[in-house]
């Protein structure tokens, strides 16, 4: 009997503070935001995370708890559960796996925590489950990339190859899809090669080398990301191809890629990861304070060429 009473008292003591500050305030008055990131070791993602950190540093009344799911959906779910236990007021999620979000939404709903999804778009049937999406549409990157390349190839047209990210990866699939949609509109452009470069520079280089050897005489190589595009341009360099003999296009506009822009790389597409992170954090902050926020926060892609690259450095 004594024991039961003790346990009850202990539980009350645990619940009480949470109950008092449940309206979105920490003991010290700070708003607590969870940021469940997909991976700290994916370079593109680190820019997004920097955006979140920037926001954290600029605002004194916010504390951001950031977690690294190491690209593992199960780990991310655990981390989100932990964040909820810690009593976050809103949560900003960059999902590892957009098809594994259902349980996440359910947990958040149970705890009444607002959800911001960033960077990776959940499937349409889940659109009612979260509060804000901040990000870009992957297919747009492929469209912008292919539009620029297709224009540059006119009037002769020619043959193109696509080096893809990991097969089955959402961004890889959609970017390639965007490429294909555009090229389908041009009768004089044909996609003759595709291969999986796994986002990897060395792998992209190897594929491009082989294509150059094959005598297929590609006029353009489109890569799903910049690292593979750098690989491709290194391969072209190694084969002593003239700079204007082949168009090489990437996506992401990483600092490395900007170095090569105009020196082998012809175009890349800037996905403003930093803005995605920053805006995602703002959205979570506003939701936590009870303010209303626009549901769709589109961060547009931007085509980056040697002409306008100075804006992105």
């Amino acid at each position: 009997m004594k024991k039961t009473v003790l346990v009850l008292v202990a539980m009350c003591m645990l619940i009480l503070p949470t109950a008092i500050f449940a309206n979105g305030q920490q003991e010290d008055g700070k708003i607590l935001i969870g940021a469940a990131m997909s991976s700290f070791s994916d370079k593109g993602q680190t820019y997004l995370q920097d955006g979140v950190r920037e926001f954290d540093a600029e605002n004194d009344d916010v504390e951001v708890l950031m977690t690294d799911a190491k690209d593992d959906a199960a780990v991310q779910l655990n981390q989100i559960e932990t964040l909820l236990v810690k009593g976050v007021d809103a949560i900003f999620i960059v999902p590892v796996d957009i098809s594994a979000l259902k349980p996440v939404f359910k947990k958040c709903k149970e705890d009444g925590v607002k959800v911001v999804i960033g960077n990776r778009m959940p499937a349409e049937e889940l659109w009612g489950e979260f509060d804000v999406y901040t990000g870009s549409e992957s297919i747009q990157a492929g469209i912008l990339q292919a539009e620029w390349v297709a224009e540059a190839m006119q009037p002769e047209g020619g043959k193109v190859g696509i080096i893809m990210g990991p097969l089955g990866h959402e961004a890889a699939r959609m970017r390639t899809e965007g490429n294909k949609q555009i090229f389908a509109k041009y009768d004089n452009i044909e996609i003759v090669m595709d291969a999986e470069g796994k986002w990897d520079r060395a792998k992209g280089m190897q594929i491009a080398e082989n294509w150059i050897q094959s005598g297929a005489n590609l006029d353009a190589v489109l890569c799903n990301n910049d690292e593979m595009a750098i690989g491709a341009l290194l391969a072209a360099e190694g084969a002593n191809l003239a700079d204007d003999a082949i168009i090489i296009a990437g996506v992401d506009a990483t600092p490395d890629a900007l170095e090569y822009l105009g020196a082998g790389l012809d175009v890349t597409v800037f996905q403003n990861m930093n803005a995605q992170g920053y805006n995602g954090a703002i959205a979570a902050y506003k939701l936590a304070k009870g303010e209303s926020v626009e549901k769709w926060d589109w961060i547009p892609f931007e085509t980056v060429t040697p002409e306008n690259m100075s804006e992105y450095k």
């Binding site: 097969l167 003759v192 090669m193 595709d194 291969a195 999986e196 082989n210 294509w211 094959s214 297929a216």
Partner: peptide, 16 residues
């Protein structure tokens, strides 16, 4: 194998 399949433009899924 890698080289040959790239040379022939074998579809990425089939390559694996």
């Amino acid at each position: 194998l890698n080289n040959g399949m790239d040379l022939m433009g074998v579809n990425a899924y089939w390559q694996q």
